[in-house]
Design a protein around this nucleic acid. Structure first.
Lengths: 194, 194
DNA sequence: GTCTATAGAGCGATAGAC
DNA sequence: GTCTATCGCTCTATAGAC
């Protein structure tokens, strides 16, 4: 249909191709995990050739790391008053999946967890947790053991996230959000208050 | 060297072969994860042929599930007095890797987490958590919301375990055990006391 | 009970024409 | 920038000789 002798296809802008690969990769990696998804499957979903995936992102692992970034958007919550912060954080966590961005953050986090036997992925995961939770909090807690406590807060929040989205604990998934927030939030608060 | 025309090898008892495969599988799966380890590698380490692995265990996934079982040995701790249970549980968790059995439990748990995108593995993981933590505890807590609280306790303990052994949080790994036990244990206790 | 051999498929990555 | 073709390798699982 095109008048040119189709030396190559209708020529999409490179940025658009890159974005299509990016989106396809996020969707497939989120749903099936790193190992179960091949470059060919990503290319097929993006409507491009498999070689382009490598050309644009270098390798499957780099594509994974670039695609599965997590923005927990917890920074805003962290700025709130220290008392009541426990419940506010848990409320934020359980509400995350109701926004599109939050849902993507959660699925990415799950995929990172499951691929964390690759050392680069483990590093990315660790850095994500540090930046999103531990570091903002350690500045709020002036005390001497602030760093350890902040990382324990991160551990506890991670526990809720993995129970919900990795293990899929049916009791917690079915539980009343208010009850969850109150109980787990107060336990978190104990960690914050020392 | 053998006098028989080596139709087949010196004939090891089947149970012994099975055990050798089992041990090799545990070691490799623990260290490298489900996807990174092939049947051939397991067979080589066990000193047997790859076909025997399939013959004895049916499939790689069945071998994985049969091999990576977790005994957290938390039941004994659960029987202790309800007050102080938080710290006792955390103490138990951070001390786990110092025993051989505990270390195997921890490495198995890590491998289960990382392979939990396979639905049978996810089910096994969920069941392990329920049996080891949630169920023993729900019997101790008489209250109405006992089940949710017990599963929140499991989530919080899972958070510590994953932070230490999946994410490898350097702050927590370097932290004083006593401090960890006190802080995280008291937060856990808040969940137990309601 | 153990082995050889192989089916049957998929993989990540590259070379080079266009 | 895009595509075709392919290299070289891995994998799980099975069939059947011994």
């Amino acid at each position: 249909m095109t008048e040119r002798p189709r030396a190559s296809r209708p020529r999409r802008p490179a940025a658009q191709t890159r974005q299509a690969i990016h989106d396809a990769a996020h969707e497939l990696f989120s749903r099936e995990g790193f190992d179960a998804v091949g470059i060919r499957a990503i290319a097929a979903r993006a409507g491009v050739d498999a070689a382009l995936v490598v050309r644009h992102f270098g390798s499957k692992e780099r594509l994974f790391l670039e695609t599965m970034t997590v923005d927990l958007a917890a920074a805003r919550v962290m700025e709130g008053p220290l008392d009541g912060l426990g419940r506010a954080l848990v409320e934020h966590i359980v509400t995350l999946p109701s926004s599109r961005a939050g849902e993507m953050a959660v699925t990415s986090l799950t995929a990172l967890f499951q691929a964390s036997d690759r050392s680069e992925v483990e590093t990315a995961l660790r850095e994500t947790i540090r930046q999103a939770i531990a570091e903002p909090l350690v500045r709020r807690l002036g005390t001497e053991d602030a760093e350890v406590r902040a990382h324990l807060v991160a551990a506890q929040i991670g526990g809720l996230l993995t129970s919900l989205h990795v293990v899929h604990d049916p009791v917690l998934l079915a539980a009343d959000r208010g009850l969850l927030t109150a109980r787990y939030g107060d336990a978190l608060q104990a960690l914050i208050d020392t």
